[in-house]
């Protein structure tokens, strides 16, 4: 069982704090994304787990073993880098065999393992090529084979797909997921791309300013964001701020927005997050919340339609709709938005 866990980890570079009191568990066999913007500390956390960076405090365990004091080369990790980091002076086969040699595996046994690893990433005939003669996608497959062949305890991925173009990236996502499922390897994946995180992960941890602000299954975080940051960083969101009153939130213009969630005591300020695709311009059954707004801009993107709206008191809202019948509302139209109280999610600012 290789569950990876991080307890009470903090790190500063000089006087700049990068991570505060991080506690996280990455259960055996799960695919977890560390999602956050630049400077959120997600890469530093990954590098602490890998052993490239020593934490100022706290512990890292891989499996049952406390590895905090063990250097990178003793941790038995598999790592993929943003730049592929293939050794340019070695053939593909020698790149893959590098980690085996370090473990004393040589000769026929090593050859067999290398062949299997290359077969797994569909590059069986590429063993004699030099890395510079491969495409970006092929190089990344080699990097994956190189990381997997040593049978690591944990696979660490540092934005490995960000240098690929969109189509290749989607292909590699499928490949990565297939191999991860096949091997059941505990995988930690750093990314700033929310779509990638949603597609790949069993679990997502959202980082902001050196803290994990929320973690859980992708659908849990998406449907129930706890903070304004999480709501905005994973997906898109509208925010309405008012004062708690009678189980709802009273907006400055007097409208009462209902929610099924528990709120603070009456009279306190509260912010509600509403996903733009959960709102509707036409009345729906059970959609007991109503807000009037005027359409500022219409964005036509083929299958999807986006509208930028403004309420009479100046709040900006977004509305997403599927393009069902090709009819668009026009800029300048005044409409009423409807949604269910279950979709008003109170969030912390």
């Amino acid at each position: 069982m290789t569950t990876v866990s991080v307890q009470n980890v903090a790190k500063s570079f000089g006087t700049i704090p990068v991570l505060h009191d991080i506690d996280a568990v990455f259960p055996q066999g799960t695919f977890t994304s560390l999602l956050g913007p630049s400077g959120s500390g997600k890469t530093t956390l990954l590098r602490i787990i890998a052993g490239f960076v020593a934490p100022d405090q706290g512990e890292v365990t891989i499996g049952e073993k406390d590895v905090t004091g063990i250097p990178v080369w003793g941790r038995n990790i598999g790592m993929m880098f943003q730049s592929y980091a293939l050794f340019p002076h070695m053939t593909v086969a020698r790149n893959v065999a590098f980690g085996l040699e370090r473990r004393g595996i040589k000769g026929a046994e090593a050859q067999k393992a290398v062949a299997e690893a290359l077969d797994m990433v569909h590059l069986s005939d590429f063993g004699d090529r030099m890395p510079k003669n491969l495409s970006g996608g092929q190089q990344q497959r080699v990097a994956l084979a190189r990381a997997m062949v040593i049978k690591p305890s944990v696979l660490l991925l540092d934005e490995p797909l960000s240098a690929l173009d969109r189509r290749l990236r989607q292909e590699m996502q499928v490949e990565l997921l297939r191999i991860q499922r096949q091997t059941g390897l505990t995988t930690i994946f750093v990314t700033h791309d929310q779509e990638e995180a949603l597609t790949l992960s069993d679990r997502i941890a959202i980082l902001d300013k050196g803290r994990i602000v929320q973690s859980g299954a992708p659908e849990d975080i998406y449907e129930n964001p706890q903070t304004r940051f999480a709501a905005e960083f994973l997906g898109d969101s509208n925010f309405l701020t008012g004062v708690v009153e009678a189980g709802g939130v009273r907006l400055p213009d007097g409208t009462l927005i209902q929610t099924t969630a528990t709120l603070h005591a009456n009279g306190q300020k509260a912010t509600l997050a509403i996903r733009p695709e959960k709102m509707s311009p036409t009345p729906l059954e059970g959609a007991t919340n109503h807000v009037a707004a005027k359409i500022l801009t219409v964005i036509y993107a083929g299958p999807a339609l986006s509208y930028l709206l403004q309420t009479p008191d100046g709040t900006r809202l977004k509305l997403f709709q599927a393009n069902r019948d090709g009819t668009l509302m026009r800029e300048g139209d005044s409409i009423t938005l409807h949604w269910s109280p279950a979709h008003s999610i109170p969030v912390q600012n």
Binding site: F13, G14, V18, S38, G39, S40, G41, K42, T43, T44, R47, G51, F52, V53, V72, E159, H192
Partner: peptide, 11 residues
């Protein structure tokens, strides 16, 4: 991305 800002890139 954040490691670009971190002064201690070397292991």
């Amino acid at each position: 991305m954040p490691n670009k800002a971190t002064p201690q890139r070397a292991s």
